[in-house]
Computed example of a mutant assay.
Amino acid sequence: MREVAQKKKDTVASLVSALVENPVIAITRVDGIPAPQIQMMRKKLRGKVDLVVSKNRLINIALKEASAKRKGIDKLAEVVDGQTAIATASINPFKLFKEMESTKTSAPAKGGEMAPSDIIVKAGDTPFKPGPIVADLQKAGIPVAIEGGKVVIKVEKVLVKEGEKISKDVANALTRLEIFPLEVGLDVRGAYEDGLFYDRSVLAIDEEAYLTDLHKAATQSLNLAVFMAYPSSKTIPLLLIKANTEAMNLAMNANIPTEKTIKLLIQKANAQAASLASKVPEAPEEEPEEEEPKEPEEKKKPEEKKEEDQGEQKEEVKEKENDKEADSGDG
């Protein structure tokens, strides 16, 4: 009896030493993990995390004793439940949580376990030929039929809802269908570092969502700083661009000619002139004046025309005679 008591004291002393000497401590559940698999997980985590499995009562005693040297570490006693192990590490609690989560794998149900989430069988073909399997699946509540020489699941169905117990018949049917509803691995329930306790809900962050929120916050803060004209190494280039743009807009609106605005002002003037011209109606073309029609000359008779020609010839002869007389008088 004394040997048992001493062994427990030694175990508690060893646990206290681990709790005090390591910067990060986590309480981990190891329920349902076979011993060989735990050994494999320890091997995978070697150099990053050390794992010590012990009885919950001894762990609680060690936490209480360690709290005398590390304030707040006894807060971990709140998450000591089920089959428990203490994980010690030098990496921060969030990295530790991620390392422990990486050990988790899907596992078949044996019956009697609680469903971690809704267990659903989808409609479609199965690899089974008609036989006793049909009765086994129907016994588990799976709607099956035989089509084309194969066993077919007719409709999608929720076999077990989250939090409900998985029956042995359902467990056997799920295993036959290669549906493994359980997740086996090291389950961190809480962690401690530098006087702070981190619950699982805090540690289980969505990294992608966190990075998206961080990027959004950075963008919004930069926009606010530029809007307020707050100078910094990040905002000064943006503030200079903003100031230059606003100065150009002011110069253009006020029609101030400069080396940079003159070309733009000419383009602006051309555009305004073209816009104005498109709104002014075109003047109608003047129609040419119509000439008054001339009255057609009356055709003269041949006799009248002959007399006119003779008269013109007599006048020409007379003019020549007059010219000769004038020349002789001058002589």
Rank of each mutant, 00 (worst) to 15 (best):
P127A: 02
T219K: 13
V144S: 05
K301S: 12
D194R: 14
G149E: 09
T105Y: 11
I91S: 06
E99P: 01
P143C: 06
V80P: 02
V49G: 01
K300Y: 03
K110G: 12
L45N: 00
K268G: 11
L19S: 09
A218W: 07
T258G: 07
P231Y: 07
A283S: 09
A123R: 02
T105F: 14
A191R: 01
A269I: 13
I166E: 07
K165V: 15
L238A: 03
E246Y: 11
K294M: 13
E164D: 11
E99W: 05
N244G: 11
A229T: 08
D136Y: 07
E316S: 14
A274V: 04
L238C: 05
D206E: 07
T105W: 08
K300P: 05
A277I: 15
V49W: 09
A140V: 02
N255Q: 05
E207A: 12
L240R: 13
E287R: 11
K43R: 14
K216S: 14
H215L: 15
Q272G: 00
K161A: 14
K263S: 08
K318Q: 12
L137A: 00
A269G: 00
N22V: 02
L51I: 14
E315V: 12
A85P: 09
I133K: 04
L177T: 01
T103E: 08
F227M: 08
A140E: 04
V317A: 14
E178D: 06
K129C: 08
G131C: 11
I120N: 02
K110C: 10
Q138L: 11
K165P: 15
N244M: 11
T11W: 03
L238I: 08
K157R: 06
K260P: 04
G311R: 10
S67H: 03
